[in-house]
Amino acid sequence: MVKIGNIELAEFPILLAPMEDVSDPPFRKVCKKFGADLMYTEFISSEGLIRHAIKSRAKLDIFDYERPIGIQLFGGDEEALAMATEIVDATGPDLVDINFGCPVKKVVCKGAGAAVLKDIPLMERLTKAVVKSTSLPVTVKTRLGWDENSKNIVEVAERLQDTGIKALTIHGRTRTQMYKGAADWTLIAKVKENPRMHIPVFGNGDIDSPQKALEYKNKYGVDGIMIGRAAIGNPFIFREVKHYLKTGQLLSPPTVDERVEACLEHLQFSIRWKGPRLGLIEMRSHYANYFKGLQNFKPLKIRLLTSDSLDEVYEILNEIRQIELV
Rank of each mutant, 00 (worst) to 15 (best):
residue 82 A to R: 00
residue 285 S to A: 13
residue 173 R to H: 13
residue 273 W to F: 15
residue 33 K to V: 09
residue 315 E to N: 10
residue 174 T to P: 04
residue 94 D to R: 07
residue 150 S to T: 15
residue 61 D to P: 03
residue 229 R to Y: 00
residue 313 V to S: 01
residue 112 A to S: 14
residue 275 G to P: 10
residue 188 I to L: 13
residue 26 P to E: 04
residue 74 F to Q: 09
residue 104 V to I: 14
residue 254 P to I: 08
residue 109 C to W: 13
residue 283 M to A: 09
residue 177 Q to H: 14
residue 9 L to I: 13
residue 30 V to M: 05
residue 28 R to H: 12
residue 233 G to Y: 09
residue 13 P to K: 08
residue 172 G to L: 05
residue 254 P to R: 02
residue 55 K to L: 13
residue 134 T to E: 07
residue 281 I to T: 13
residue 190 K to F: 01
residue 35 G to H: 05
residue 255 T to A: 11
residue 138 V to P: 04
residue 261 E to C: 07
residue 214 L to W: 09
residue 105 K to W: 06
residue 220 Y to P: 07
residue 35 G to S: 11
residue 52 H to S: 12
residue 104 V to S: 11
residue 226 M to P: 01
residue 293 G to E: 08
residue 87 I to C: 10
residue 321 R to T: 06
residue 204 N to R: 07
residue 153 I to M: 03
residue 131 V to E: 02
residue 169 T to M: 06
residue 272 R to W: 01
residue 150 S to I: 05
residue 192 K to H: 04
residue 24 D to M: 09
residue 251 L to K: 13
residue 178 M to F: 15
residue 308 D to H: 14
residue 70 G to Q: 05
residue 235 P to L: 07
residue 157 A to H: 06
residue 189 A to L: 08
residue 168 L to Y: 03
residue 116 V to N: 09
residue 15 L to S: 03
